[in-house]
């Protein structure tokens, strides 16, 4: 203790004793560490990465053209020569179509969520932190959008804008903004009234530092988790839009569209017809489980 008294009025020694303090792992690195210790999340993550790489490198893994069909080779069963996953109703190779189709499906899953995460997140955090008139204005506007069921709203927007990939991404982004705003607003306003925000202010933190440093770290977890769970919904909704003819237009491959066009063949080749549905299911499931793993990894209180 004597070293402290020697320095006079301050309680801290001026030449600090050289003690090796291992660098603090930081929040995100410790989240990463916990994610790695969760077998389900790791398995699901590997599966997701596999799907991602197969679709990204579709021209390499699938040698056949996804849009050229053959009249004589229609609706071949799984395991037939040259088409190990069979062919669809116009004789196009299912493996190639699934691989190429994944690109659009993942895009329509991730892109709307990313857009709504950015816009909705900013709006929600603003509403939650500012409160008062600003908060009310933002939240009541969102309530107007809430009045419509999400799929109906997506159909309505797509119907107005016309079909196509870009428009369906836009429509889904608009559909996801209100729930994203609501989630961000809720977690932010809960967090804002906790003592540590006041304590941070009492130790000289400015408002912008509080928002960037304390609020974001506390709020980003729940928001990100919610966003991840929306990806699966987005894939399913966009598959629904394609199914209704409002999303991606044929002959482009997309899982929802494929499911739609193979519907008529369900009695001829039930397994082939089910393949796009299976892919949608597996991918959505993977995203949901990732969200789940992320949720427990991001909560430091559950760390043990």
């Amino acid at each position: 203790m004597s070293q402290f008294q020697a320095i006079g009025s301050i309680g801290v020694p001026s030449p600090p004793p050289i003690v090796a303090i291992p660098a603090s792992p930081g929040y995100w690195r410790s989240v990463w560490g916990r994610l790695q210790r969760d077998p389900v999340t790791v398995a699901v993550g590997i599966l997701l990465l596999t799907i991602f790489f197969v679709t990204a490198f579709a021209p390499l893994v699938a040698t056949q053209d996804p849009t050229t069909g053959s009249v004589i080779g229609r609706l071949q069963p799984i395991g037939s020569a040259g088409h190990w996953l069979g062919t669809d109703e116009t004789g196009r190779d299912m493996w190639a179509r699934l691989a190429y189709g994944g690109r659009l499906s993942l895009l329509t899953g991730v892109a709307p969520v990313t857009i709504s995460l950015l816009i909705g997140g900013i709006l929600g955090i603003t509403a939650g932190y500012a409160g008062g008139l600003v908060g009310t204005l933002i939240m009541r506007t969102m309530d107007v959008f809430y009045a419509f069921p999400s799929i109906l709203l997506a159909i309505a927007i797509c119907g107005m804008l016309g079909s196509g990939l870009f428009n369906s991404v836009l429509a889904l982004a608009l559909v996801f903004i209100p729930p994203m705003v609501r989630i961000s607003e809720t977690v932010t306003s809960q967090c804002r009234h906790l003592d540590f925000v006041e304590a941070a202010r009492a130790s000289g933190t400015t408002t912008s530092q509080i928002i960037r440093h304390h609020m974001l770290a506390n709020v980003l977890g729940p928001i990100l988790v919610y966003a991840t769970s929306l990806i699966s919904l987005s894939i399913i909704l966009s598959a629904g839009l394609s199914f209704l003819g409002l999303g991606v237009t044929p002959p482009a491959a997309e899982w929802g569209l494929m499911l739609n066009s193979l519907r008529q063949s369900i009695y001829v080749q039930p397994y082939v017809a089910a393949l796009p549905g299976l892919m949608i299911f597996v991918t959505s499931m993977c995203f949901n489980l990732t969200a789940d793993g992320l949720r427990s990894a991001m909560d430091v209180r559950l760390a043990h």
């Binding site: 540590f196 006041e198 009492a202 000289g204 933190t205 400015t206 304390h214 770290a217 506390n218």
Partner: peptide, 22 residues
């Protein structure tokens, strides 16, 4: 902001709530 936490500092009733959990 400079004065708070500088010459004027404060401790709170509930240390659990007053420390940032993350």
């Amino acid at each position: 902001a400079k004065a708070r936490g500088g010459e004027l500092s404060m401790i709170f009733q509930e240390p659990m709530a007053a420390l940032d959990p993350v």
